[in-house]
């Protein structure tokens, strides 16, 4: 065990898997000599060389498309988008080529696409997005979103080992803010939900950075017993864990940092409405970023991103319902 930041844990997962499996390579813009915009692959090129730590041209479609080609002839590429927002430029290759390949012709595309996502530090409309739901709507692509250092490493290893395209959502606001004990060596974290805190009166379903917002908001909420469910994986979605928690507490608050309409939380709400209607003692409640581009200036950004206070308020209302 070692204490690591979320960012160090991602690096550790990548490094361990590159040591364990010669087929694994990382590729992206400025990831080699410079070590990546966020330094996730700092020092990698010295250990693994430029063929396995590849500085690419500024071309996101190129990154995803060539990774697909490399994967079908036997490599296990891990692509870095410098910011998740840029996956819009590689969307077609991911959704149409990678996502549909196995269904169409039984050919596996084991690629991992790292997507540094999320807001909270004036990244503005093009460096703050949470595009995970785009890929939930795209058959054939898995989507994971760790919230802790331990899961950041374990999910990285599981994503690389998964024989499918996996979008690995790494929240930029957690990179250096979140620290935790991380097991040594190789371990895999399953694509299932995790109970971040047990509780009996209310369930908060969330993932990524919002797990910490939810934990902070309900740490001492007038003595209420609040369960926080960290989804960890959006595709596949752990509906069993969601329903089990809701059946236990009968009240549910869903928190997304992504834009509200058709966000991951909307699917969670639908699952609950369909399968746990009889178990509910209050309305399924959602908090999400309204459907706006993420604004740059701090007061504007803070006005749209879900905050500890908003979660507190919604939780209190629901507890009192």
């Amino acid at each position: 065990m070692a204490t690591m930041t979320y960012l160090q844990a991602i690096s550790d997962g990548l490094r361990q898997e590159m040591r364990a499996d010669q087929r694994v390579m990382v590729m992206g813009e400025d990831i080699g000599v410079f070590g990546g915009a966020f330094k996730v692959t700092d020092g990698f090129i010295a250990e693994f060389g430029p063929d396995r730590v590849m500085d690419t041209p500024l071309a996101e479609s190129g990154i995803v498309g060539t990774a697909i080609g490399a994967a079908v002839v036997g490599l296990r590429p891990v692509c870095e988008m410098q910011f998740s927002d840029f996956i819009a430029c590689g969307f077609d290759q991911l959704v149409n080529v990678a996502g549909k390949m196995h269904y169409r012709q039984g050919l596996a595309v084991p690629i991992t696409v790292r997507l540094p996502s999320g807001g909270g530090f004036s990244g503005g409309p093009f460096h703050s997005q949470n595009p995970e739901a785009w890929f939930m709507q795209s058959p054939g692509i898995k989507v994971v979103a760790p919230s802790t250092a331990e899961d950041a490493k374990g999910l990285m290893i599981s994503a690389i080992r998964d024989p499918n395209p996996v979008c690995y959502m790494e929240h930029k606001h957690l990179y250096r803010r979140i620290k935790g004990e991380v097991p040594d060596g190789i371990y895999e974290t399953p694509f299932t939900a995790r109970v971040a805190r047990e509780g009996t009166e209310l369930t908060i379903v969330t993932y990524g950075a919002m797990v910490h917002t939810a934990l902070e908001a309900t740490e001492d909420l007038d003595g209420a017993s609040v369960e926080v469910l960290d989804l960890r994986s959006l595709v596949p979605l752990d509906t069993e864990a969601i329903l089990a928690s809701v059946r236990k507490t009968s009240k549910v608050l869903i928190v997304d940092e992504a834009n509200r309409t058709c966000a991951a939380g909307a699917e969670v709400a639908a699952v609950i409405a369909e399968h746990a209607f009889e178990d509910l003692d209050g309305p399924v409640t959602r908090i999400a970023t309204p459907d706006v581009p993420i604004p740059f200036s701090p007061p504007l950004e803070q006005a749209v991103l879900p905050s500890v206070d908003r979660v507190k308020e919604a939780a209190r209302e629901l507890l009192a319902y």
Binding site: G62, G65, I68, G69, A70, A71, V73, L75, V97
Partner: peptide, 9 residues
């Protein structure tokens, strides 16, 4: 791009 990626590998 897929063919380019094969060649890259």
């Amino acid at each position: 791009l897929v063919a380019t990626g094969m060649a890259m590998a």
